[in-house]
Nucleic acid binder design. Structure first.
Lengths: 173, 173
DNA sequence: CTTGAAAGAAAGGGCCG
DNA sequence: CGGCCCTTTCTTTCAAG
């Protein structure tokens, strides 16, 4: 089982979240380690699934998808989006979260235009009762996950919360 | 002024969102182009800001931050989180969105434990009225932004909303 | 945009502090 | 575990068709 991350690991994670294309040489320079040493640590982090992958960060607005909205969806039983293949049928859905409380899921969608967004709402609305919220602007997104204060590490909820998900594109927990 | 993205650009974006460390050679093979050709396109996409950067995708659960929550925050005027430096004071805040509607902002936070989460709620609650929602599980996150259906590009809401993707009906993808 | 070649850099292995 | 050396491999970049 994987040991807890030390400070160097967090520095590595921080750097790689800012620039995922850093070479082991550059990375080693930033964290005061030699290239083989950081290569070892990075490999360990990858094998442990802490680093789930590397991806280009896309500016959706500049890519022609300037609109973002959150959709709370209370599913009709059996027609929940979660159980369907949201991948191909709903390319506009960028995130799916299962929430506590009354609503089944929280979706995040990207749209090219208001008519497009409207059409998405209608399409998703067929799956249940929806509550939509349009994003006016976004200050942060994909902000680097940082090391939490030390005192917060106690009292872990329980192992087993994370369903041993495959560390694959589109799903870090 | 940047021209609209064509199908090949979208394929490149798709591949780079799945694996941001692809070499131009590998990438070229995937999109049926030579290395120099895709290097050119990628460079153009980077300069246009469509590709905003590259980053390692972290599995926050495996990194010791298994809890996610959304916080709707209605700011007290002048004490809005948006205007403060959320960077250093709130390392747990991963996203900040300004929303339409009554609530000022939507925050997304990562926490190591329930006490930690509780403490975050209390800390952020000082800035205004909050409405919290804990995420039970996440199906997708950071799902690749995909090319929208062609018909959605028409009828932009109003000029000035997006200075990218001049959309005309019947435009080839 | 493609092919081809050259220069440069990076990754992996082995050994020692 | 980390640092240093080496060798091999790959990527990048330039040139020309």
């Amino acid at each position: 089982m994987s040991r807890a991350l030390d400070g160097t690991d967090w520095r590595i994670l921080s750097e790689l979240q800012e620039d995922g294309r850093l070479s082991f040489n550059q990375l080693g320079r930033k964290v005061n380690l030699s290239a083989p040493a950081v290569a070892d640590r990075v490999r360990r982090l990858e094998e442990a699934g802490v680093i789930a992958g590397y991806q280009a960060r896309i500016d959706a607005t500049r890519a022609g998808l300037p609109l973002t909205a959150f959709i709370k969806l209370r599913c009709s039983p059996g027609r929940c989006l979660l159980t369907t293949t949201a991948s191909d049928e709903y390319p506009e859905v960028v995130e799916i979260h299962k929430l506590s409380g009354s609503s089944c899921t929280l979706l995040r969608v990207r749209a090219a235009s208001m008519p497009h967004l409207e059409e998405i709402f209608e399409r998703i609305g067929r799956h249940g009762e929806i509550d939509t919220q349009i994003v006016l602007s976004t200050q942060y997104e994909g902000r680097p996950v940082a090391e939490p204060p030390a005192h917060t590490r106690s009292a872990q909820p329980s192992p087993g919360w994370s369903r041993a998900a495959p560390a694959r594109p589109g799903e870090p927990s």
